[in-house]
């Protein structure tokens, strides 16, 4: 239980930092991660009601977040979203596998499900830090790669 609150604290702090100091990809990711964490918390509160519904709800939240992150990876003028998206995709895949076959490799499942989120949050913070450094150094930082006219 404490681990959950610890994670929420870290997530809120990181998203807050990204929203304040980040470029558009950081802000968008910060907001998306925050919403996903809150939604997952809401969905999981219905545990006694419907077990099948729990899995579906968490899966939907994961998939939505994955779509957002893939779009950011494809369009943003950054490199860190690719890593974060890869991690999240693997985490979503782990959920999927567990939904299909509940007992395969239980310990590894537990590790996979919980452990992905921390590196993703860390990557967001690192991305924001580097972005703010670039802004401080040269005053500008493109948000989306197609904002560079030479790239189209």
């Amino acid at each position: 239980m404490d681990r959950v609150w610890l994670f929420y604290t870290i997530q809120v702090a990181a998203s807050g930092y990204a929203l304040l100091r980040g470029g558009a990809p950081e802000r968008l990711t910060g907001l998306a991660l925050l919403l996903a964490a809150v939604s997952t918390g809401i969905v999981q509160r219905n545990i006694p009601i419907l077990f099948a519904g729990l899995e579906a709800g968490v899966m939907i939240v994961d998939l939505l977040l994955l779509v957002v992150m893939i779009v950011i990876t494809l369009k943003a003028d950054r490199f860190w979203p690719a890593w974060a998206t890869a991690l999240h995709a693997l985490g979503t895949g782990a959920h999927l596998i567990r939904a299909i076959s509940p007992d395969v490799i239980r310990l590894v499942n537990a590790v996979l499900s919980a452990a992905w989120s921390y590196p993703i949050v860390l990557l967001l913070v690192i991305g924001t830090v580097r972005h703010s450094r670039r802004i401080r150094a040269r005053g500008w930082d493109l948000d989306w790669s197609r904002q560079d006219p030479t790239l189209r």
């Binding site: 802000r27 968008l28 943003a76 950054r78 493109l142 790669s145 197609r146 904002q147 560079d148 030479t150």
Partner: peptide, 16 residues
Amino acid sequence: FLGLAGDSGSVGAARN
């Protein structure tokens, strides 16, 4: 918020 306003003044070469 989405960085689509077009007035950000961010110009330059894309890194990625």
